[in-house]
Amino acid sequence: MLAEITLQIPEILYQRLVNTARATQRPLEEIILHALQVGSPPVWDDVPEEFQADLAALDKLDDNTLWQIVHSCKTAANMERYNILLEGNSNGTLTEAERLELMALRHEADLFMLRKAQAAVLLRWRGYSVPTP
């Protein structure tokens, strides 16, 4: 599905796009679409499908909320329980209920880290300097 828009751009930018199209012997429309794709907010479609809706929702958040996500931390209690279950899993001593709990915590941890990473990338794209941990 395609959407059509009319857009007024500065002449100098238009000339750069035209020059690039000529130099690369590609249609102007292709050059403009490429520039939009490269300059668009980062995508989330390279992550597992189960996390995509959560990451897509981040696009709609304001900067302050994204900063809160970037700076969020898991609680010590959550991390301790996760580590206990991981150890039990490696020892082969988990019950079925604990195995399910470990899977749920792993899913939760994966989503947590993906949200933090996507929020940081979105903030960088929006022009902020986001320190790396």
Rank of each mutant, 00 (worst) to 15 (best):
Y14K: 10
R22S: 06
P42C: 06
A53T: 05
A76N: 07
I12R: 12
F51Q: 00
Q68A: 09
D63I: 14
M79A: 08
K60C: 01
T20C: 07
Q37I: 15
E80I: 09
A35D: 10
T6V: 08
I32F: 08
A23W: 04
E4D: 05
P41Q: 14
I69C: 02
P48V: 05
P27A: 12
E30G: 03
T6M: 09
P42N: 06
N78D: 15
N19D: 15
W67G: 06
Q68F: 02
T24F: 06
R81W: 06
F51E: 02
L36D: 08
E29C: 08
E29T: 13
D45E: 14
P42Q: 10
A23C: 10
M79K: 06
S72H: 07
T6A: 08
D46T: 13
N78W: 12
L13P: 00
R16G: 11
W44M: 05
W67T: 08
E29H: 06
V38R: 11
R26W: 02
L13K: 05
N64A: 11
D46I: 10
V18T: 14
P41T: 09
R81M: 08
L7H: 05
V70L: 02
Y82P: 10
L17Y: 11
E80D: 13
A35R: 06
S40Y: 03
C73N: 10
E30V: 14
R26A: 05
D59E: 12
L36V: 14
R26D: 04
Q8P: 04
K60G: 00
I31C: 09
I69H: 01
R81N: 09
M79E: 15
R26G: 03
V18D: 14
D45Q: 12
R22Q: 11
N64I: 07
C73Y: 11
V70E: 01
A23S: 15
H71A: 07
I9L: 15
A35W: 06
G39V: 03
D46H: 14
P48A: 15
L58H: 00
Q25I: 02
A76D: 12
A21N: 03
T75W: 00
L28I: 07
P10I: 05
I9T: 11
A76F: 12
L61D: 03
P41N: 06
N78C: 12
Q15I: 14
K74A: 09
T24L: 15
A56Y: 01
T20L: 14
W67P: 05
Y82V: 13
V38T: 10
E50S: 04
Q15K: 11
